[in-house]
Computed example of a mutant assay.
Amino acid sequence: MQIYNMHDAKTNLSRLIEETVNGGEPFVIAKSGKPLVKVVRIDAEPEKPLRRIGFMKGQMKVPADFDTMGADEISSMFEDAK
């Protein structure tokens, strides 16, 4: 996504909007390097939110004894600490 500073956006606003309306990418207008607004077509499809839950599905396997793994070692550490 292209970022334009306020001065460039004012100078080229008609062209930038025309490009966006005719299937171009949305663009951002910034002031002093800080993004202020995003210009998109009114009938543009909304961006899908980034889905984080389940992003590693099928890439890892949790052992069936996960809840009890290392229980003997952990117990011995606490028993030895007394």
Rank of each mutant, 00 (worst) to 15 (best):
M1H: 05
M1S: 07
Q2S: 09
Q2A: 11
Q2T: 14
Y4D: 03
A9N: 00
A9C: 03
N12F: 11
S14T: 10
I17F: 01
E18D: 09
N22R: 13
G24E: 03
P26H: 11
P26L: 08
V28S: 01
I29L: 09
K31G: 04
S32N: 15
K34V: 15
P35K: 13
P35M: 06
L36N: 14
V37F: 14
V40F: 05
V40I: 14
R41L: 09
E45V: 13
P46Q: 04
P46K: 08
E47P: 01
K48R: 15
K48L: 08
K48M: 13
R52G: 01
I53E: 06
I53Y: 07
G54D: 04
F55N: 11
M56G: 02
M56K: 09
K57H: 06
Q59P: 03
Q59W: 07
M60D: 01
M60G: 05
K61I: 15
V62S: 04
P63A: 10
A64S: 09
A64T: 12
D65P: 03
D67Y: 12
T68V: 12
T68F: 04
M69K: 13
G70P: 01
G70V: 04
D72H: 07
E73C: 00
I74H: 05
S75W: 03
M77Q: 03
F78R: 06
F78S: 01
D80W: 00
D80V: 01
